[in-house]
Design a protein around this nucleic acid. Structure first.
Lengths: 143, 143
DNA sequence: CCACAATGGTTGTCAATGCAAATGTTTCCT
DNA sequence: AGGAAACATTTGCATTGACAACCATTGTGG
C-alpha cells in the first residue's frame, strides 16, 4: 500500500487540531480573548506562576510572541509580570484576581467543548487516545 | 477530578501537532519548501487536480493565503493554475512534472518522519489512533 | 430572460508571528 | 575575583497570515 498523505498521522492531527482551534476561537471571541490568550490563562490557572520560557513551552507560542502577548494581558489586568528579588533575569507570570475569575468562567466552556468533540468515544478509548498522543509527544525528541 | 487544561484533548493535540510541524519544517527547509507548500504538493499528488476551495479545506490553509501561496508555486513551476473553459469562475490546481517529482522526493521523507513519530505503537494502536482522530473530526461539525 | 442571489477567487490592509540582534543577569571556570 | 559562557527576556524588522472588500461568473426565481 502506498503512502497516502491525507491518511498520515501528522495530516490528521493538523486537520483536527486546526478545526478545533478555529471553533473554540469563535466561542472565545465574545469574551474578547484569543486562543493563545486562553491557553495562557488556563495554564496559569493550574500552575500558579510560571516564567516566560516555561509558559512558552507549555502553550506552544514562540517566546517573543508570548512576551508581547503577556504585555497585553498585563495591560488588561489579567496577569502580573514580576521579576523576583532573588533572580532578576527571569520574570514570573501569574494570574490576577480578575484573570483567575475569567479563567474560571472560560474553562467550563472548554470542558463542554471538549466533551462534544470526543462524544461517542468510550472513556477507555479517550484514555488510550491521550496515551498515544503523549507517546508521540515523547518520540518527537528523536526527530 | 477537576478539569486539567494540559490534560485536555485539544491541548495535547495542539502541543503534539505544533511540534511535529516544527520538526518537519526543518527537514523541508533544505528543499526551500515550507510546510504549507508541502501539504499542497502532497495533496495534489494524490488527487490529481483540485479547485482552490477544495484544496483550502484539505490543507487547512485560509483561502486568501492559499491563493497567494499557489501564486508562488506557479512561479516556481511546481503547479499549474487554470480556469477551465466550461467554468470560468473556478480554478484548477494541478502538479507540473517538476512538482510531481518534488512530491515524490519529499513524501518518502515524510513517511520516514511519521514512522519515527509513531515508533513504539503497535499497528492496531495506530489504526485506533487514526480512527479516534477521524471520529473527533466528524464531531467537529456539531461544535 | 433578466434581475439578483450565490459561488469562487483575488487583492488591500493591518495585526500577528518569527527570527535575529541587543540587553541584562547569573553561573561557571580558572 | 574576573571574564567568558549560558540563560531569560525584550525589541527591531521583515514576513506571514487573516479579514474584509471587491470583481467575475454562474445559478435561480419570477
Amino acid at each position: 500500500m502506498p503512502y497516502q498523505f491525507t491518511d498520515s498521522v501528522p495530516y490528521l492531527l493538523n486537520w483536527v487540531g486546526v478545526r478545533l482551534g478555529e471553533r473554540f476561537s469563535l466561542r472565545l471571541a465574545s469574551y474578547d480573548i484569543t486562543l493563545p490568550m486562553y491557553r495562557v490563562l488556563a495554564t496559569l490557572r493550574q500552575h500558579e506562576s510560571k516564567m516566560l520560557t516555561e509558559l512558552s513551552e507549555m502553550v506552544s507560542v514562540e517566546i517573543s510572541t508570548l512576551s508581547r502577548l503577556v504585555g497585553v494581558l498585563v495591560r488588561r489586568d489579567l496577569v502580573t509580570r514580576v521579576r523576583p528579588e532573588d533572580n532578576a533575569r527571569i520574570v514570573q507570570i501569574a494570574l490576577t484576581e480578575k484573570g483567575a475569575e475569567l479563567a474560571d468562567e472560560l474553562m467550563p466552556i472548554a470542558a463542554m467543548f471538549e466533551k462534544t468533540a470526543i462524544e461517542g468515544l468510550k472513556p477507555e478509548e479517550i484514555k488510550m487516545f491521550k496515551t498515544f498522543l503523549r507517546h508521540i509527544g515523547r518520540n518527537i525528541g528523536s526527530l
